[in-house]
Design a protein around this nucleic acid. Sequence first.
DNA 1: ACGATTCCTGACTAATTTAGTCAAGTATGA
DNA 2: TCATACTTGACTAAATTAGTCAGGAATCGT
Lengths: 138, 138
Amino acid sequence: MKLGTKGRYAVMAMVDLAFYSEGKPLSLTEIAERQALPISYLEQLFLKLRQKGFVMSTRGHQGGYTLAKEAASIRISEILEAIGEPIETTRCKEESELGCLGTKGQCLTHALWAGLGRQMQQYLNGISLADVCQRRLT
Amino acid sequence: MKLGTKGRYAVMAMVDLAFYSEGKPLSLTEIAERQALPISYLEQLFLKLRQKGFVMSTRGHQGGYTLAKEAASIRISEILEAIGEPIETTRCKEESELGCLGTKGQCLTHALWAGLGRQMQQYLNGISLADVCQRRLT
DNA sequence: ACGATTCCTGACTAATTTAGTCAAGTATGA
DNA sequence: TCATACTTGACTAAATTAGTCAGGAATCGT
Ligand code: FES
Ligand code: FES
């Protein structure tokens, strides 16, 4: 049960952006350097973040990325979902009514994992970029 | 952020054991069949579970595994830890005082991930095998 | 106009981790 | 003594992760 670099880097970069940008766009070069992240990797991530509407880009000289919404209204859970690092605790599909072992109802542990997932989702849902920047964490 | 089969199978098997055993040992064959799990894989897992003192084994005919403690006193978090599926949300080592980027203090997101980890740990800590068997889940 | 900067995008790959299998052995009870 | 079942380590195939790389397109300052 570990957090991969994809989700970690995306959140680190977004926090950096929220923290150091003052309206002006920040280049990936700058962010990558400050956070010690591979820049080519960040490019992939910001592509998705832009497509999902979390950041805006300006090209060319003095260009870079800007938050497309207020930092207080971007939840960590949204970032993770946007770049494709979902929380998968249960093994069965939500839609299909067959449990993870293929037969009839849910397995004995389904409720346990579902509860864990709900817990995590709730936590990450309740925290915004602004919260992280201001260290307003429980 | 997904749960692997190692942890999942271990918990499924332990729940099965707690649920269907009535003092008598259950063979891995039986458990594996009922839960649709690969038996050779379970062998590895139960090796560790025995070494850590969660189950007892009886060999030979009519042998199998039995819980070594009461189901109510085995927490899910303990099972996951025993078979080596720890919760790793932060990237930095707990001991060393250097953050995940190598320099000075902790990174901007450390508190966030630590909080997530604490949350998960707390949830899995508060649930015992008995709770799962009796579907006493929030 | 030019050239530096920066985003944009897809394709590709190396390394790691996961999810197992396999084989040989030991202990036990019927 | 034979079938059952645990014991243990070594090995491997597949999937995932964590990136790299290359080429392109837009923009701005000079
Ligand atoms: S995890 Fe949903 S049925 Fe097993
Ligand atoms: S995760 Fe602990 S310092 Fe970054």
